[in-house]
Amino acid sequence: MRQIVFLATAAAAALAAGGAMAAEGETLAQVKARGVLNCGVNTGLVGFAAPDANGNWSGFDIAICKAVAAAVLGDASKVKYVPTTGQTRFTALSSGEVDVLARNSTWTFQRDTDLKLDFAGVNYYDGQGFMVRKDLGVSSAKELDGATICIQTGTSTELNLADWFRANNMTYQPVNIDSNAEGEQQYMAGACDAYTTDASGLAATRAAFADPDNHIILPEIISKEPLGPAVRHGDNNWGDIVRWVLYALISGEEYGVTSANIEELSKSSTNPDVQRMLGATDDYGAMLGLDKEWAKRAIAASGNYGEIFAANIGEQTPIGLARGLNALWTQGGLMYAMPFR
């Protein structure tokens, strides 16, 4: 009996420690007190979030973590990267294990409402696609009737897949996998005919193959997958910080503020938008609970949105993604930052 009481007490203590919630302004205070930003990222997706041989993380999503850390803590390296799978990511966020989730997560109705998440914005407009071996002789997703398909469980793509095949009166055999690495291995071993996830993820996965030329990404995009950083419901201040850091990065590209010229522009720029954003005239940082130069540091961390895109997943990288929908609104894309005013 004594043992049971002990165990129950231990379990209760563990439970109490795990409880977390988000109240206005609390996340910012916690992060500042901790001195480190806990950022939930992918377990490994080259170009978006992947550690190198020395354990240093880099990628498109990692740049968001760095920008937030730079804005809040003044140091882009003060980030603890918490790798999460499709299954664990939202629990990690809502339990307070991570402060912000930058992990190729699709902004959906149910996640926004029922899962009590707040998406700060969209940093990549994506869609779900299929990758197959070239020698399979398939040129369209419509030819995949009866195929075995590898799919990451717990993702929005899993539901899209079921809906799309049902809508097209086709059948398939799902192989549920837990992470991109496992999917890669199963796909390479031939345990599935096709691998499906966000088209950007497919491009990144293919870039890591030894023989990328033997695999093709089918032309059909079967869903809308707006990916963006997410925070918990309830702490609007923290949500604002992440949202405006993202807008600062996008505005940076729009106004031509790069990591190279930012020091100079913060003093010499005559553009009132840039002056406000970089804290040269107004103190917008105070409205967020930050200091004057928050946006300057965020952009300086790894450059503006365009720089981050080009360095991690752009056409000059092995992943080779075109800007497409992710170009600025001034260039026919959907990237549009709200005004700094």
Binding site: A11, R232, G234
Partner: peptide
Amino acid sequence: IAVMLVGWWLVNNTLTNLARMGK
């Protein structure tokens, strides 16, 4: 009584924390 209290506290703690997370 101790076991009951611990049990009640466990359930209560869980429900409270769920409520604070908005669930």
